[in-house]
Amino acid sequence: MKKNSVCPFKAVVIGVSTGGVSALKFLLGSLPKNFPAPVLVVTHITPDSDDGLAVLLDTMCTIRVKEADEQEFVVPGTAYLAPANYHLLVERGGSLTFSVDPPVNFARPSVDVLFETAADVFGSALIGVVLTGAGSDGSRGLLRIKQSGGMTIVQEPADAELSSMPESALQMVKADHIVCLNEIPRLLTKLLAG
């Protein structure tokens, strides 16, 4: 695979569950305005949630944060949150689509669905991040990212509000980086700088 010398990565995908709101406040809130890649996020929210979390995060972050729109093309410096009750998928060409396929790992949106479709599209130019949460959603997706040559980051379980999601990911994947939440923004910025 050819690597662009300026920025080796085209996208960052993040999966988070329990503890997600405060983790995202910190992580997205620490990214600089000119962050050179789009950030796609699945957080487990109840099916009847509106776009309130995206709106809230947008007021707190210097990067733009929004709920993903159908067939929207992703751009750097923006974080896209999966809407409640829909899976978020990435298409070739970098647009977003939704599905109402059955829940995966009891979750819709599911981290695995986002990670697997993003890995298909971005290959080795993808960074996958699994943060705090209950359950095992995201593990298979992270494995797919790893197999496609992408970079894998898992929050140090001891640092997570709920450790089972990162633990499960670590059981399945030999992650490239196992770090505390407060180190992740700097790590991402460094990786994206090439």
Binding site: L89, V113, V121
Partner: peptide, 9 residues
């Protein structure tokens, strides 16, 4: 049909 969903299914 949108490819990513079709591919998964």
């Amino acid at each position: 049909y949108a490819e990513s969903s079709l591919r998964r299914r």
